[in-house]
Design a protein around this nucleic acid. Structure first.
Lengths: 333, 333
DNA sequence: GCTGGCATTGTAAACGATTACAGCGCTACC
DNA sequence: GGTAGCGCTGTAATCGTTTACAATGCCAGC
């Protein structure tokens, strides 16, 4: 019954060497003599010793973890990104801390405490609504933004949002649509703005009518999509096609109008954004813009690790490509 | 430019007191005189001091975080649970570490290293496939299982899986179905087994035919559901209703048969399990068993914190209720 | 005036690892 | 034989806190 956890002292005593030698055996085996090394390893085995990460981190002035600040943990959108992040962090020996920036009372306060208390060696920020000031100022652990970004003061990984929107709308045009509407993401969100600008660009380029009442409010959620569907059904003069700023909204929209007897794509064509897994299984399968979420996570983690290892507070940004996935939610007219 | 981060020493010097007094001011303000307290707080303010969590943790023999071991981070199923976990941990001052037990080469090895290296004060285990041995043995940080569990050696939070299945099948029976099939979760998974047993129980109780070829293999994924759909379509003699062990499989199944021109629920009725958000927006909206994932996370975190604070290695288990959500994917016959 | 006790603060030893530096024994070379 | 250099190991300082214990000053009570 070895209830007590062994420390490096115990191992040293057991092996008849100093703690320095034990430590070296574990971190730089090459510098210790073969015989000693084996003795130490045997002692480690016998005592069941594991290095105490906290102590090690304190001495080495690091924490061995990276924290991801996520606006809403419950949103499945992020789980895939996190998987990407984790797949890079894990082999590199870093832990992944996650937290919800919106949950709890004082998001801004907690933010700044994350920044300064050396709780993590780096930060991946998925929330563009947090004010950048404390981030840039603090400058302690390196920070990288992913998905959303607010200015150029921080390195970021992002997807080609405007271009995705352009691809989506261009596809609708190509299929013969001239009356095209848009379901917006949340106002003020950079993603929304970019997608909107891409939408507007193609609408203008093709000399299409840009009608106020064909732009529907939204917030990326399914419920918002459903609400937009209701509004659409109430319209006198309806667009024949819609570009939804997120797949979730497209799902909500489609559900709402189908439940009332409308048919997609005969009555209305839809294009989404994200290519979340489920949309391929809908009826009709949703045409959408693929955004490689796993890759976003991987690249963000990679770039952050580079910064951490180089000891710099800034680094390169990266843009992830998007592409159009044609399925069955767009009719040719 | 105060690039250097202030330590407690700096604050002590600045305030003209000892480090002990600074520490006390921050943790037990009541024991220090008002004047000193104010002086210290002013010094803290001026220096921008934040306590170094690593050092504090080392001294206090804790880590201030809890780790969640998740079989597949990319699975959105867990994001909602994590949100629940986080909502309890955050106010309690604990951080949430997450890791993917399946990613990377040696899951079992990494597991045991998590256990012993004092990386977290507690562990929430979402993966029932990891062998329980090292867990029970190590006994260092308390462990709680959530969702899946393997034996009674560890406390757990779980949902009424068998009962959920019973509700689902009973509902189908009530709607007049006598030819009922089942799409299985992964073999060997406790959740699958439990749901299967619930299915069998109700089938027997009602004297229904239990046909081998009406039991379809699966693994909870949409693709598996789609595959089951293909098999179902290939059958000579088809069941009129199916209980799917997960919503995702129900979605996949529904998509596959609808794409081939079958109609749900006219040609086949479906009941899922989980009540993930999207299923209410499908056409038809999916009848399913609600499993309160946020609550599972909350309760698991709560119970774990209790164990951590009590310093015990074991504690009570808990079962979360399920309920039937009637929607439109079951036809009356 | 002395003593006991209280309130407050300081001293210093932990916590468990890492690592610069010094020391030791050998070999090799001149 | 002396010394330079190498390979290996030990000593001890250090990371930044927390906290048991001791010390101090002050007041009340006798």
């Amino acid at each position: 019954m070895e209830k007590k956890i062994a420390t490096i002292q115990d191992v040293a005593a057991e092996a008849g060497v100093s703690t320095a030698t034990v430590s070296r055996t574990l971190s730089k085996p090459s510098v210790v003599a073969k015989a000693t090394r084996e003795a130490v390893l045997a002692a480690v085995e016998r005592t069941g010793y594991r290095v105490n990460t906290t102590a090690s981190n304190l001495r080495r002035q690091r924490t061995g973890s990276v924290i991801a600040l996520i606006p809403n943990l419950a949103n499945p959108f992020f789980s895939q990104i996190l998987a990407g992040v984790n797949s890079v962090l894990q082999p590199a020996g870093y832990g992944l801390l996650v937290t919800d920036t919106q949950a709890g009372p004082f998001p801004e306060d907690r933010m700044s405490s994350y920044l300064q208390s050396a709780i993590a060696d780096g930060i991946i920020l998925f929330d563009g609504t947090l004010s950048p000031a404390p981030l840039a100022m603090a400058g302690r652990p390196p920070v990288i933004m992913a998905c959303e970004w607010m200015d150029d003061s921080l390195p970021s990984v992002r997807t080609e949002n405007a271009r995705g929107a352009e691809l989506a709308v261009a596809h609708l045009v190509e299929m013969g649509h001239r009356r095209i509407g848009h379901v917006l993401g949340p106002r003020g969100n950079v993603l929304s703005e970019d997608r909107l600008s891409g939408f507007c660009k193609v609408v203008q380029e093709n000399g299409l009518e840009a009608r106020e009442d064909w732009i529907f409010d939204g917030d990326f959620s399914m419920d918002a999509g459903a609400a937009a569907g209701e509004v659409w059904m109430g319209l006198e003069d309806r667009p024949t096609a819609l570009f939804c700023a997120s797949d979730e909204m497209a799902i909500g929209f489609m559900g709402a109008v189908q439940h009332k007897g409308f048919s997609v794509p005969q009555d209305v064509s839809l294009v989404g954004f994200d290519n979340i897994e489920v949309v391929g299984h809908l009826t009709p399968a949703l045409t959408t813009i693929r955004q490689r979420r796993t890759q976003v996570g991987e690249r963000a983690a990679r770039l952050l690790l580079d910064m951490i290892e180089a000891g710099t507070l800034t680094g390169p940004s990266e843009v992830i490509e998007v592409s159009l996935i044609r399925r069955d939610s767009v009719a040719r007219i």
